[in-house]
Amino acid sequence: MNREIKAAIDNGDVDRVRAILTDDPAKASALITWGPAHCPCETEPLHYLSDAPFNRLWDHGKQAELARVLIEAGAPVDGLPTSGETPLHGAASLGEAGVAEVLIDCGANTEAVADYPGIPDGTPLDFAVHFGMVDVVDLLVRRGAKVLSTRMAAGAGQIERVQTEWASLHDPDKQFDVFRCAVVCDRVPVVEFLLAEGVDVNADLDGATALHWAAWEAKPRMVEFLLGRGADASKQDPEHNATALQWARHRGDQLGPRWGHPEVIEMLTNAG
């Protein structure tokens, strides 16, 4: 269960982690068990560096430094073959830009693929775009990650490419996906272009609108923009019968104030 490494990581004790790994380098890749007793998770230490702060287990800010120590001790930078996704996918999904940069510096494969609902064969950039982790999106693009689709271009803010490729997208679900990626990645110019091309600001996929997703991912600038362009804050998704405000409250309760949900909640409350 690698309890010793977990405790040192949880405490942000870089020197203790280094000492443990000097004595037993195998612990750099031994699985850590965490989470509630009724539903425990097992993950590699490199992946845990992104999982734990996102899930509010700690927030000491030593993730990047700890990542480098683990890799220097032999932790596989692209994870164990049985992991399903690489540590870079985890950092991309959960917004750990510092960890992502260390992984890339140490040779992580930016084109590795993993599966997630809605992101089959997704690269780390695909994952970062999907979850609106803009700092990681920008880092990956800057470090040479391939922008393989229109949805990724929208998330990366590459408006000229979106303008070039938009006319060839005829599937409404794919069109909405491009719109959603631009929204959650806070790319106002791309969203402006798509609205000018006829995308309905209140369009939805399975009942969830762009405003729902901007609220969920805590994008106050985008929430303000969408409201200004006529987004209907009263619209409910059919699965949960919840408005964008209720989505923001639920996600804010899960993640705490770190991601900016309180500002979004205030905006949507004032919008009625």
Score class of each variant (00 low, 15 high):
Pro220Val: 01
Asp59Cys: 12
Ala154Glu: 08
Asp204Met: 12
Val184Arg: 03
Cys181Arg: 11
Ala37Met: 08
Arg151Ser: 15
Gly272Leu: 01
Leu268Trp: 02
His47Cys: 14
Gln175Ser: 09
Val99Asp: 08
Ala7Arg: 14
His170Trp: 10
Ala196Asp: 15
Ala244Glu: 02
Arg16Lys: 15
Ser83Trp: 05
Gly230Trp: 03
Leu57Ala: 09
Val264Ile: 00
Leu205Arg: 15
Val190Ala: 05
Ala26Tyr: 12
His47Gly: 12
Ala75Tyr: 03
Gly107Asn: 04
Glu44Trp: 08
Val201Phe: 00
Gly252Trp: 00
Met222Asn: 08
Glu85Leu: 10
Asp200Cys: 03
Arg56Thr: 13
Asp10Val: 00
Ile5Asp: 00
Gly118Pro: 06
Val141Glu: 05
Pro120Arg: 09
Glu192Asn: 08
Glu192Met: 08
Val178Cys: 08
Asp126Ser: 13
Thr22Trp: 14
Trp216His: 13
Leu169Val: 15
Thr86Asp: 09
Asp138Phe: 10
Leu139Trp: 02
Pro172Lys: 08
Glu263Thr: 12
Asp204Lys: 09
Gln163Pro: 07
Ser93Ala: 14
Asn270Pro: 06
Ala112His: 06
Ala196His: 10
Leu21Lys: 05
Ala8Ser: 09
Leu148His: 15
Thr82Gly: 09
Phe54Ile: 09
Glu44Lys: 11
Thr164Leu: 11
Lys146Met: 11
Thr164Phe: 09
Thr86Val: 04
Ala167Met: 10
Asn2Ala: 04
Ala8Lys: 05
Gln158Ala: 12
Ser50Ala: 13
Glu217Ile: 08
Gly12Pro: 04
Ala108Leu: 07
Leu70Phe: 03
Leu169Gly: 04
Ala19His: 10
Asp121Gly: 15
Thr110Tyr: 09
His47Asn: 14
Pro36His: 06
Gly228Pro: 05
Val184Tyr: 01
Thr123Gln: 07
Val162Phe: 00
Ala145Phe: 06
Lys146Val: 14
Leu94Ile: 01
Pro172Phe: 06
Val134Thr: 15
Gly144Phe: 07
Asp10Lys: 06
Val129Ala: 10
Leu226Ile: 04
Ala67Gln: 06
